[in-house]
């Protein structure tokens, strides 16, 4: 089975966010990039499915820039067979729908039977590229998946839903987005890292996929804001009994939550 894994480059989660001088973008100068943490569960799932089947190919796919190519090497080092990067001046700051139609075009061109994603890209946190892509492909989809099995051309996915779990059955080809708990992503071995260095990142522009730039954007960014600073809180002193008494009093009379 040929499995595609869509991965996104994101700033390290420790990154301090600053707003760029134009007030409409985040300044990512000097930031170090990683593969979005959820995407690592998707890569691991693909590698395990390939190992279990004893055959197949794992292709990592991204829409991005030069830095994206660098983080794709980490996926190759984990064991992915190939990397396909779509980069084009027309997709700078691409919105989710744009990313999805490009990923759908790559999935079709590659002829993948299963397309895996992370459940959300930490960063913009749009939580929609997997579902948008599935819809564009006309494939069944299961989002936020914590259990996955493929047998006899059918996929069984256990999804996390509010207050419970749902078991879905999907025929292939299908789209799945990975949630934490699906597996424990492996570390790249030294051998994997060396092998990844020799591989090429296959790079395409939009036109090579038969796509024109997106005609209509869904929104316009008006401005970015930093979160409002929380007013300095109050430390409650005293012995535990006195502290608890005062806290309950404050919750009752000041915060009015009790």
């Amino acid at each position: 089975m040929k499995i595609g894994v869509c991965i996104k480059k994101v700033p390290d989660t420790e990154t301090r966010i600053r707003i760029a001088p134009d007030g409409r973008q985040v300044s990512l100068e000097g930031v170090s990039f990683i593969i979005s943490p959820y995407d690592e569960f998707a890569i691991e799932a693909a590698l395990q499915l390939k190992e279990k089947a004893g055959q197949g190919e794992v292709v990592v796919i991204a829409v991005g820039d030069e830095d994206t190519g660098k983080v794709m090497r980490n996926a190759l080092a984990m064991g992915a067979d190939r990397a396909v990067l779509v980069t084009d001046p027309a997709v700078v700051e691409a919105e989710p729908y744009d990313v999805a139609r490009i990923l759908a075009a790559v999935a079709r061109k590659e002829g993948v039977e299963l397309l895996l994603f992370g459940k959300q890209g930490v960063g913009q946190d749009y939580q929609q590229v997997p579902t948008l892509t599935a819809e564009l492909l006309g494939w069944p989809a299961a989002a936020v998946v914590v259990g996955l099995d493929v047998a006899g051309g059918e996929l069984t996915a256990t999804r996390e839903i509010d207050g419970g779990e749902e078991v879905d059955r999907l025929s292939l080809p299908a789209v799945v987005s990975a949630q934490k708990g699906l597996n424990t992503p492996r570390y790249a071995s030294l051998k994997g890292i060396m092998a990844a260095k020799k591989k090429t990142i296959e790079t395409h522009a939009l036109a090579a996929l038969g796509l024109a730039p997106l005609a209509q954007r869904s929104w316009e960014v008006v401005r970015l804001e930093m979160p409002p600073a929380r007013a300095a809180g109050r430390l409650i002193d005293g012995e535990p009994e006195a502290q608890v008494k005062q806290l309950v009093e404050l919750l009752h009379t000041e915060a009015k939550v009790l």
Binding site: V26, D125, S218, W219, V222, E225
Partner: peptide
């Protein structure tokens, strides 16, 4: 409509305005 949403896990917010005649 002016819509505010958190980005970078609430480390910042973006304010966006839908473009076009239909927004979700």
């Amino acid at each position: 409509l002016l819509i505010k949403r958190p980005i970078y896990a609430g480390k910042a917010f973006e304010v966006v305005k839908p473009a076009g005649a239909l927004a979700f």
